[in-house]
Each structure stands twice: as C-alpha cells, then as structure tokens.
Design a protein around this nucleic acid. Sequence first.
DNA 1: CTGTTAGCGCTTTCAC
DNA 2: GTGAAAGCGCTAACAG
Lengths: 341, 341
Amino acid sequence: MRPTVHDIAAVAGVSLATVDRVLNQRPGVRHVTREKVERAIRELGYVRDVAAANLAKGRTYPFVFILPASDNSFMHALNAEVRAAVARSPVDRTEIRTIEVPAFDPAALVAVLEKLGEERPAGIALVATDAPDVRDAVDRLVKEGIPVVTVVSDLTGSQRHHYAGVDNIAAGRTAARLLGRFLGGASGDVAVLAGSMLVRDHRERLEGFATVIAKEFPSLSLLPVIEGRDDPELAHMLVADALSKQRGIIGVYSLGAGNRGLIRALKEKAGDRALTVIAHELTTHTRAALLDGTIDAILNQDAGHEVRSAIRVLKAKADGLAVIDGQERIRLDIFLKDNLP
Amino acid sequence: MRPTVHDIAAVAGVSLATVDRVLNQRPGVRHVTREKVERAIRELGYVRDVAAANLAKGRTYPFVFILPASDNSFMHALNAEVRAAVARSPVDRTEIRTIEVPAFDPAALVAVLEKLGEERPAGIALVATDAPDVRDAVDRLVKEGIPVVTVVSDLTGSQRHHYAGVDNIAAGRTAARLLGRFLGGASGDVAVLAGSMLVRDHRERLEGFATVIAKEFPSLSLLPVIEGRDDPELAHMLVADALSKQRGIIGVYSLGAGNRGLIRALKEKAGDRALTVIAHELTTHTRAALLDGTIDAILNQDAGHEVRSAIRVLKAKADGLAVIDGQERIRLDIFLKDNLP
DNA sequence: CTGTTAGCGCTTTCAC
DNA sequence: GTGAAAGCGCTAACAG
C-alpha cells in the first residue's frame, strides 16, 4: 500500500494536522518539527493522493478562457471545444467561463486581464494579441500567482506558464517545403494570404515560409503579403484581384483564416491555370476544397487538443504539479486528401 | 452544488446503502424501490464523483500490456512509454505489468491471453498479430467482461473494445501521394520494404499505398514487396540487392521497422542516383536520415499517445464510462525536416 | 505551535 | 430488502 498521511504522522511522531501543514507549506510549524516530518515523507516515499485532497478541499477550478470574437470557422471550432470542456466540467471539477474580446485589439484584452486580476480565477487561458501592453498585463497576473497559458497564438517575451499551440515557424517552413516539392522545381510567383501581422502566429508562419522558400526553392519568388483580416469577403476580393493581375502565380499559401473567400477566388480562376495551394486549418470549407483538388495540403492545429491541454496545464500549475511534456506538445497536423479524419 | 448520494437518498426516501446498490446495479433492491431511486437520480441530474468512488473503493486498476519482443527502435519506444506510464502508476491508480511475446507468433500470443483469462486483470492492451486464433482468444476475454484494446496493429473482425493506433490504410495512401507528388510525374519503379505480411498494419499500409499509386500515379510501377522482418540486417541486405539489380528504382516506401538497415543501404548507393524515400516511424536513425536528405518524409505514430490512450480507454471501459473520441484518435504524424519535434 | 475532530462523496460491512 | 455506521486519504475548523 502507498503510505498515507497517517503513516507520516506515526513515523514523525506528530499529528495529522501538522503533517498537513508541512505538506501544504502552511505556516505555524517549528523548524525542527517541519524537518522531522519532511524526513518521514522522504523515507516513506510519500506521494499525495490528489483526488483525495481535492475531495476534502471540495476544490473546484474556476478557469477563464479569453477568446477573440472572430467570425471564422477556426474560432468557432475553438469555441465549440471550450463549450465541450464546460460540459465535462462537473467531472473534472472545473468551472470554465469564457470572455469574448474584439480580435486584434490589445487594449480590450488588457482591460479584461486587469479585471481578472481582481477576480483571481484559478487560471486563465487566452488567445494572445501580441503587444507589449498585453505582455505586461499577463506578467502581472503571473507575478500574482495566477496560472496563465496562451492558446493558438503566443505572447512574445512574456512569463506565461505555457503555450498551447503549434510551432508556427515550423508550420511556415513545412508549408514552404510542401509547396516547393509539389511544384517540383518549376519557376514562378507565390502568393501569400495572411490575416494580420498583429498576431504572432501569422507573423511566424510567414517568417518560416519565406526563409525556406528563399533558401531552398530559389526558382520561386514571393509576392507581397495579402492581408485579409481573416475575413472571407475581403480575402476573396484581394485574392481574385491578385490572380488576375499577377499572371505568374503558380502557388498560394494561405496562412490565416477566412479560407472560404480564398477558395471561391481559386475556383473562379480554376480554368486559367494549375495552382498548387497550401492552406491552414481544417474546416468544412477547406476539407471540401482538399477533396476536390482546389487545395493540395492543409496544415492544421487540433483545437480540441489545445483546449484540453490548456486545461490540464492550468490545473497542474494550480496544484503545483508537473505536466507530461509529450502530452502537451501540440502537433502540426498535415492533411492530404488521404488522411482526413 | 452538484447533487450527491445524500440528496438522492433524501429525495427517494431511502438510505445511502440502497442508493449505492442501485447506482452500482447490485442485487437486493425491490423493483419499486429501484424505480424510486432511479427517478430521483434523473430528477436531480446526478453524476457520480468518480474520484470519490475510487477513493472509497480503494480501487486500483491492474492492467496488462502484451508487447512483441522485437528489437527495433519503435518497439523500444513503445516499451519506454509503457514504463513511463508505470512510473505514473501511483497517481492514476493503475498497476501495469508488461508481458513480452515473440513477434509474429500467434500461438504464443494466444497462450498468454488464455492465461490472463484466469488472472482477470482490469484490462488488457496488446499489439495484435492478426490471426483467427488470436481473434478468438481476444473475443473470449471480451465475452468474460475483460476490457481489451489493441495497440499499433489491430485484429481483424474481433470484438476488442478499442484500437489505439493509426489508420494504416490512410497511412499507405498518404505515403503514396507524397511520393507521387514529390516525384512530380517522373516514370520509374518504386520499391516497398515491409516487415511481415502477418501483421495487419503492414498489410493495410501496403494496400493503401498500392491503391493510390495504381490509380493516381500510373507512371510509377510497384516492384514486388521486400519482407525485411523488421530486422535491420535483413533489410539492409535485401534493399542493397534490389537497388543494385533494379536500375529503374526512383522511389522507396518503407512501411515497417528496421529502417537502420534501409538507411545504410540507401547511403551506400547514394552517389548512384536520386531517390525519393518515405519511411515510417520517427527514431534517432530516421530522424538523422530525414535531416541529411536520405529520407524525404517520415510517417509516424506517437507511441506515447498510444499508450496513454490505451490506458485511458481501458480505465473508462473498466468503469463503464464514456471516452472522448477526439482525444483517442491516434493521428498519423507527417514529418518533413522542418517540423520535427 | 500543535492536536482533535468532523467531514468531503462514495462504498462496504454488518445488523435488522 | 433495507439501513446505520465506519472508513478511504486528505483538509479545515477549532481547541489547547
């Protein structure tokens, strides 16, 4: 049998309450007593039964998710996954509340974060807009002992405890290599559609993409980035325009959201010429486009995994526990038409 | 607050013991009483606190992992992941024992399974050798109420509760499309290195691969499969031989293990000609080969995820609980040199 | 500073 | 058939 607090108490010659105080580093224990108890703990190889502790504490974890109010499929999916987690709340003792903030708006995000500082939830998960003010607000929360994790897009230079999202530089590089290899040495222009350069994930994808194209596929040349604000209408307009004017385009990389518009533009110009296209995020639209050949590969992050991982990590941090690193690494999924889930 | 057994008891006008009997479908409750309790449960929307239940039961889960005694990196990794799970045992109340059986040996596997039938562990995970005898042995265990999951390679037509592994047909198809696209319309022969056609994962990968090559890349022709028994030495010999004799080979698909040997053979012939190579399983050897350009893409299954998933599912089945499907889907990882973890 | 005691939500004797 | 009471490992008053 695993040793319990009783065993520790017996070995150390103290009461349960004292053991508990030491275990939870509460004050009010003489140094010598503390040492005795700690020795007993070590000798017995005691590991705390977290389930029992939580039961006794009646502890629940009030967590907050801060999500951008963006109207694209990916954010909808992320939202849905958070709701799914809420549905599981009773089971895993979480109480998740979500707050929507305007997308790409550092000030709004900061305001919410500051309010949360007073509320002191057991943990905060946010899709970060990458700005110094946001970073400072997050660092303040961290300093106050509130666990914070970023989801999907990270916060440069901040002290957040964890980032639950993919390596976006790697994502961009991978997109570049796929595109380059699929194009098999052809020469021509490559168009890049992004959402906004205000979020770190998009910037990083572009950076990775540009690096590999430049270094390893010199016969391809990158056109200036098109910023579609993750908005299907805008994306459609801009891409259609680019395809008409730039006759040399042979490849397209869509690194943000709003692919609905992109796909429409691609189909309108389909007869024109063969295009190789790589896009991000598996949605009903991109899935259909992959299957009908409009898109050649989709890079994806699993929103469900990100949400569950964020919660696991927040919980672990709240309890001062370790996390299984491998389990929390968010993979970059690559989908061809053959391995769709 | 969530309703508890006390609330049910109060509402139904019975004692805790009776509630518990109903909850755990134990006998000794009159039909009418049972109905009263069940109604109360429904009305209150009661959900059992599994942690508290386990605490009271002092329950642990004795699980058994049956692994093939294969000397290749992937099986070593799988083994290591099981050991990692053992290290976490105290925390998640599992008691995991692993049994090694000779690889590709249905009889040995059946013998072990039958012995386990008497021992009655709380759950069994096995890497299946795909044979009718094995299927029957597994089905017998399932019928006796023991949760069984297959890991890595599945068992055709069996009643196992779950398969914790990738979709291998999809894996083969994906390999074909990557190879085909990377070769960009070139004509030539493709060599396939497998471990054994006795395991379902290898058969399925081949099947998926052959289908897509035939249908979508008619300029490529498949050479007869080379069976390397997942043995580096044998693989080296056979591949080296094939590369010497078949001058038309422009692509290689290695769908099994023992890639150490494959890589050696490829390097020996490197000067000869350009080869496009797709292999399975990320190991130190394949990783190095991917980075140095000997291999162009690696398809991988995450052994850690498979093991953790198998355990989660076994636990859920043992408790009669539901699993989160999305969480238990084992992804096919695709690695290029840019997105290595 | 330290100990006693009740209790978290559930299960399990052992009576009745 | 049913119920009362003790206890799983831990925490939290409240005394001393």
